[in-house]
């Protein structure tokens, strides 16, 4: 069992509901439950991969944790400090410890600022170091992400996608964060460049002990980079386990379908796909009971009635959480819908 002290990020019952306005008076008529009661622990020095289809709430979860979106309810602790309770000043200080890397490095870099200006900015905002120290820090960072000093006076449009992503990573590293949300950070890159950036992320973790929430729709990439993997569907974590267990023995029918759909780069293995019927339902009007029951090939009558509780089907040392009536014990006293899966190696 992982010691509580090794938990860097703790998320409990986190919800983010977006109001949907309508009618003449633009009153709230409904809400989109983008993140709906998510709990997990992320140990120091580890990566939790988050997978799921578009619109399932992956990015919203990442942003709600950083309070880039104000959570509707729930708690987030970073290194023992409650992020969700922090006031403005506190939050600014906390921001040094938690950073984000986006999918499209181009959109997240200012076109009119040189790379040097972009990388100096966080240090200036937080008033860290003298001018000379700031400059030194930026040069060191460039070396860490494998860019030459000569790029400092250039502008983002002069770079390739892979180079821009390295700049984005360097910027996220300027304040020595403990935790980074990488939101589809390699998705826009070609494989040859993607592999370079994935190796860079792994090296940074080894060197600086950073914890990552690695969000991606690409299951192969997630398996490669993560210690633990969480699968999201309609705002909920439906399965969480070590990368090894979840890929070797997926329990949730959604996880199984997702895995079976990944094209395998080997013509000798003809994958046996589990076909899902229909599309993902609207998060504005999620199905009753298990959110997956409308597409589940194994749905049972009570799946549409009862929300399945998270059950640990693994061991205490290596937990494997799944929210599915096929695996759950229906008699469990109904506590919180999602118990905290304690991540472990």
């Amino acid at each position: 069992m992982i010691d509580d002290n090794d938990i860097l990020l703790r998320v409990r019952h986190l919800k983010k509901h977006f109001p949907v306005k309508g009618g003449l008076l633009r009153r709230q008529v409904a809400s989109v439950k983008a993140v709906d009661d998510v709990s997990f622990d992320l140990p120091t020095h580890e990566t939790l991969g988050l997978v799921g289809e578009s619109g399932c709430g992956k990015s919203t979860l990442g942003r709600a944790i950083l309070r880039l979106h104000e959570p509707t309810s729930g708690q987030v602790w970073l290194d023992g400090i409650e992020v969700t309770a922090a006031d403005k000043t506190r939050l600014k200080a906390l921001r040094r410890d938690m950073q984000i890397i986006f999918q499209d490095p181009y959109a997240s870099l200012s076109p009119r600022r040189t790379i040097l200006e972009t990388l100096l900015e966080p240090l200036q905002i937080h008033g860290i170091g003298s001018k000379a120290e700031q400059r030194k820090k930026v040069e060191d960072l460039l070396e860490v992400v494998g860019l030459r000093k000569a790029v400092l006076n250039r502008y983002p449009h002069e770079f390739s996608g892979g180079q821009r992503q390295r700049v984005g990573i360097a910027r996220a590293l300027t304040l020595n964060p403990k935790f980074i949300v990488a939101d589809e950070a390699v998705s826009a890159l070609d494989v040859s460049v993607q592999s370079q950036v994935l190796n860079l992320i792994a090296d940074l973790q080894d060197e600086f002990g950073i914890s990552f929430l690695f969000i991606s729709h690409d299951l192969s990439v997630v398996q490669h980079i993560s210690h633990n993997v969480g699968v999201m569907y309609l705002g909920k974590l439906v399965e969480t386990a070590s990368a090894k267990d979840i890929y070797a023995d997926p329990k949730h029918p959604y996880t199984r379908a997702l895995m079976s759909a990944v094209p395998v780069p080997d013509p000798k293995t003809k994958s046996r796909r589990i076909m899902l019927s229909g599309d993902v339902p609207s998060p504005m009007n999620p199905p009753s009971g298990c959110p997956f029951h409308t597409r589940c090939p194994e749905a049972m009558p009570h799946c549409s009635q009862q929300i399945p509780a998270a059950t640990n089907v693994g061991s205490t040392a290596s937990p494997h959480w799944v929210s599915c009536h096929l695996h759950g014990d229906e008699q469990t006293p109904t506590g919180p819908a999602t118990k905290p899966p304690n991540a472990a190696d």
């Binding site: 592999s195 994935l198 190796n199 792994a202 299951l219 490669h224 890929y247 395998v264 780069p265």
Partner: peptide
């Protein structure tokens, strides 16, 4: 250089 779903984790790509 393609990451693959496999049983054993490969250190670096």
């Amino acid at each position: 250089s393609i990451p693959r779903i496999r049983d054993d984790k490969l250190g670096r790509l």
